[in-house]
Design a protein around this nucleic acid. Structure first.
Lengths: 164, 164
DNA sequence: ATAGATGCAAATATTTTGCCGCCAG
DNA sequence: CTGGCGGCAAAATATTTGCATCTAT
């Protein structure tokens, strides 16, 4: 019951333990948070991921590097990263069950656009989105710290297959 | 472990069984879907709700009208309504656990804006949001059918309490 | 040395399913 | 009448927690 979370072309992951000091690892170190063997591996997976992963996918990839990583530890590490505001949590409109997906969040928010027909997920960035968040901040006098936008519909291909 | 899903000022619900033929009930009838006693009650609750409700809240309100409503039936009816595209499902950024919230969706999409400090949830509509969705549809050549935006941050009050 | 992390198992929480009797149309 | 629906219990899924042990700093 695993979900393919997207079909973006992968440029290949870097599963190179030593060379790559990803952004997450660096951030955790900077904040003086203990870096255990397991955390290093999980952060590496997240850093190298070309797209959002679910918990099982994280575990699977982590175990390829170091078999001694436990599901519980993945959950706990995700919690840590969420609390540190270093990753985003998605559920892709519950497209396939209630699984959650995680991704290290870059400097700019992006929108996830999912095709309800084929399950393909693409990402979208827009100045309009930044404006929208600013408008909310202004109107509600809020400090906006997180945002999530997920859009569903039917992609060109699927529209052709099932002409509505 | 119940969550207060928002603090919007309620204008009071209408729990009047006969008089009000809400939009959901009407839509279900129009589509020739069987209207059982339980469904009628659940739809009435959803129609009268002033805001998003979680499954337990729906059950609780339904039982005040008719004690013979089961949790399973609430789940099954929600499934039905989701498949019919008559309600939206939210999770409010997992603000408090992984509970899901449901609301009958009006003609216009709105954004849910949650304060991470006090849990207050407000709604926001914007022409900008409509433009954003149009932009996505155009750029990706997609037919957009659902969208969900949830924004989190700190409201004015909470910013004062905890000056950053 | 020691606070904090992990592993393991068991507990929770939430949602889904199988089966059978019942009711709306 | 009859096929879909609801009730009940049990299963499936997903996530969290208690506790003893281990380890990064």
């Amino acid at each position: 019951m695993s979900v393919s979370p997207g079909h973006r072309v992968s440029t290949g992951e870097r599963l190179n333990t030593s060379e790559t000091t990803g952004k997450l690892q660096q951030a955790i170190r900077e904040r003086g948070i203990r870096l255990t063997r397991q955390r290093r591996v999980i952060l590496e997976v997240m850093d190298a991921a070309e797209q959002h992963l679910d918990v099982d996918q994280i575990l699977e990839r982590a175990r390829k590097i170091d078999a001694g990583v436990h599901l519980v530890t993945v959950y706990r590490t995700i919690d840590l990263l969420k609390k540190q505001g270093l990753i985003d949590e998605l559920d892709l409109l519950h497209l396939r069950g209630d699984r959650h997906y995680y991704e290290s969040h870059g400097p700019r928010d992006h929108i996830h656009v999912a095709c309800l027909g084929c399950g393909k997920v693409r990402e979208f960035e827009s100045r309009l989105y930044e404006q929208l968040k600013q408008q909310i901040a202004r109107d509600f006098k809020m400090k906006v710290t997180v945002s999530r936008t997920e859009v569903g519909g039917y992609c060109e291909e699927c529209l052709v297959k099932t002409p509505s």
